[in-house]
Design a protein around this nucleic acid. Structure first.
Lengths: 122, 122
DNA sequence: TTCATATATTCGAATATACGGATATAATAT
DNA sequence: ATATTATATCCGTATATTCGAATATATGAA
């Protein structure tokens, strides 16, 4: 497979990764700010292994970046480098707007973020 | 599931449908013009049942529209009605650019279209 | 009616994906 | 060293998706 083939397969895998409810909810939360796994876990109200597994998929495709800070690992949305990647961001932005589920995610996230928990390494 | 849930599931299904090589190749061909199944079949160089099956998926999600003309059925790209659907079109446009496979699809399509075959119903 | 062409659907098999619970790893604090 | 917290990975199961070949349907022509 040539260079074009590889680019192609990568783009298709990226789109495929977007076509999953859990991953799309994660990406929508990351539009606003970077978040660690336990914050995402609280926002989504899903088991940790499930959140972590989806983050691994997103990371392997370059859709999120990770940054360690002590025991926390913070995930953030990737920075688009070309037109295709820009359209990926646009799709994330425009999808699930007015979705009750996404609203609840944000509500749960706010609750979690408002907890008094001090970041160890700051 | 409420109305938002249904919209959500529909959008996710649409994205999932984009995440398949065959369907993306079909949609890219339809960006330029409407095409019947046998033209798509020639362009993609894939068995008829496979092309037809993917068209059925795309039609069920409203990503393509169909129009009968005698024994031919012509498929065309859907018209976006909102921001999400516009971002779907953008993603189709921006994906697989400079892809060798898509170039070959267009070459095979040209060859097919240049064949002297008269449309029965025109 | 019969035939030919275009398209759709069915079938079983192969592969891929998503899941929760359990376990493993990694960093830090005591 | 041990305990604690955060995160990642493994495992078996369940479900979903894709495929080609074969068959069914639908239209129009002879």
């Amino acid at each position: 497979m040539n260079i074009f083939g590889r680019v192609m397969q990568r783009q298709i895998k990226m789109i495929k990764a977007l076509g999953d409810e859990t991953r799309l909810r994660i990406l929508k939360l990351l539009l606003k700010r970077e978040l660690c796994v336990c914050e995402l876990e609280a926002a989504l109200s899903l088991p940790q292994s499930r959140v972590s597994r989806h983050l691994t998929v997103l990371r392997s495709l370059g859709l999120v970046e990770d940054r360690r800070e002590g025991t926390w690992i913070f995930y953030s949305l990737f920075k688009p480098q070309n037109d295709f990647e820009k359209s990926v961001i646009q799709m994330i932005r425009n999808s699930l707007s007015d979705s009750e589920l996404v609203n609840q995610d944000e509500k749960r996230l706010k609750r979690k973020l408002s907890q008094v928990y001090v970041y160890k390494c700051k």
